[in-house]
Amino acid sequence: MTVYLLCFALFLVGVYGVIAKRDLIKIILSIGIMGYAANLFLILFAYKHGATFPILTGGKVSPMVDPLPQALVLTSIVIELGTTALLVALVVRLFQKYGTFDIAKIRRLRG
C-alpha cells in the first residue's frame, strides 16, 4: 500500500512537470518520469513474498513471481526508448524552426 502510493506520487511528479513546465526538454524528462512510474507500478503488482525470479535453474522448483507483467514491461521499456527518440527529433526540429525551447514563445511565434 505504501509502495503503491509512493509509485503513484512519482507518476504525479511527472504529471506536474508536463502541466507546469514550459521548457520542452523538461517536458520530455517529465514524460520519461511518467513512463518509469508506470513500468514500476506494473512490476510491483507482480511481486510475491518469498518468490524468486521466473527463470528455471535446474534445481528444485521454488515459488516464482508473476512473469506476465515482466514480459509486458520488457517491451514497454524499448518502446519508450523509441518514443523518446521521436520526441527528441521533434524538439530538435522545433528548435531549428523557432530558435527557442519555450512553448509559450513558440505559440506566440506561430503564423
Binding site: G82, A85, A89, V92
Partner: peptide
C-alpha cells in the same frame, strides 16, 4: 532493436 536505435542516433 540494435539497428533502429543506432540509426536514430546516427540521424540525430
Amino acid at each position: 532493436v540494435a539497428m533502429s536505435l543506432f540509426l536514430v542516433v546516427w540521424v540525430l
